[in-house]
């Protein structure tokens, strides 16, 4: 019961954060709302007994991603508040999004899924599997990261003034 109350509180935080991202007039506020939503997600992970992923979530999203986004904000000119959202599009967007939400929720209620009580993943077992069974995909993911790193550098390199 307590866990349900905690879940509602954290969900509320996550949803408030998400709403802040899409409704706030100030882009810096929007990014802090994003941070709130991401940390809330980490809380959900903890509730679901995935503490390793919660830590990863806080470190990568809360630490790296939001920081990088703030850097991007600092490096670009922050636009006029009014032009942050496109007023012409919002009615149709809202309508379609609501429709999608309704469809999703109907789908969720329609689908019968066999559930059980909260299951635990042992951390040692998880790490063993990750590096044995999923070893090659893991290495490939690291390769993708490397490629992205190089790609980002290449994209940002100022070719015009180099020579």
């Amino acid at each position: 019961m307590i866990s349900l109350i905690i879940f509602y509180i954290i969900s509320a935080l996550v949803l408030i954060g998400s709403a802040g991202v899409i409704f706030s007039r100030n882009i810096v506020y929007a990014s802090f709302s994003l941070l709130l939503a991401l940390l809330g997600t980490a809380g959900i992970f903890v509730l679901l007994l995935a503490e390793f992923l919660a830590i990863v979530q806080i470190l990568i999203y809360g630490g790296a991603v939001v920081t990088v986004i703030l850097f991007a904000l600092m490096l670009t000119k922050i636009d006029d508040f009014r032009s942050l959202s496109n007023i012409n599009y919002w009615p149709i967007s809202a309508f379609l999004t609501l429709l999608a939400l309704i469809v999703l929720i109907i789908g969720i209620y329609q689908t019968k899924i066999d559930t059980q009580n909260l299951g635990l993943v042992k951390f040692s077992k998880f790490s063993n599997d990750l590096f044995e069974y999923w070893g090659i995909p893991f290495e490939i993911a690291s390769l993708v990261l490397l490629v992205a790193l190089i790609g980002a550098i290449v994209i940002l390199k100022d070719r015009g003034n180099d020579s």
């Binding site: 991202v21 882009i27 942050l84 959202s85 599009y89 999608a100």
Partner: peptide, 12 residues
């Protein structure tokens, strides 16, 4: 859905 809405309306 919040994310989707944001992608459709935000300009920045």
């Amino acid at each position: 859905c919040i994310g989707v809405y944001g992608v459709m309306t935000r300009r920045s």
